[in-house]
């Protein structure tokens, strides 16, 4: 099996353009393919059209739909419900964290409380084991 076929694809749902570029570069440096979107509808379209192995999800996105709505749709779809989701947001409200945990996301990070290398390390542990 060649290296290209082995490459995992991460969908990054993030509306802050300067963060998207940096997260994307960092993930590509680590050997992943990256697909980015700033809206829930854009993200769901990517899920339909591409083979996504992991989801990096911010809570607040462009448009009226948020990460909770995206997660709800993904978890209801048999093809997608087992794809790991890391919610990486800057909101730390207990009600939001609880909502995501009840939907079954893998982990919730408050961006400013973590080093980006640590989050990427955790992604590698899940995807590359």
């Amino acid at each position: 099996m060649n290296e290209k076929e082995n490459k995992k694809t991460i969908l990054v749902l993030e509306d802050e353009s300067s963060l998207v570029d940096m997260i994307s570069s960092k993930l590509k440096l680590e050997g992943f393919d990256v697909v980015v979107s700033a809206t829930v509808d854009g993200g769901l379209k990517d899920m339909e059209e591409k083979k996504i192995d992991f989801i990096w999800l911010d809570h607040y996105l462009i448009g009226s739909k948020d990460g909770v709505e995206f997660t709800t749709v993904v978890k209801k779809n048999d093809k997608w419900k087992n794809i790991p989701i890391f919610v990486v947001s800057n909101t730390a409200s207990m009600d939001k964290i609880k909502a995501y945990k009840e939907l079954g996301v893998t982990r919730y990070y408050v961006k400013s409380d973590h080093r980006i290398d640590d989050i990427i390390g955790d992604i590698k542990n899940i995807l590359l084991k």
């Binding site: 940096m22 607040y60 909101t91």
Partner: peptide
């Protein structure tokens, strides 16, 4: 509740940018 959630997001986002970009520089990326 929503105000505190949104305020925390708006305040933390530029700080996360500063933190993460400086981490990238420090790790030699």
């Amino acid at each position: 509740t929503e105000f505190v959630s949104l305020a925390s997001h708006q305040l933390r986002t530029p700080l996360a940018i500063i933190k993460w970009y400086s981490e990238l520089l420090l790790s030699g990326d």
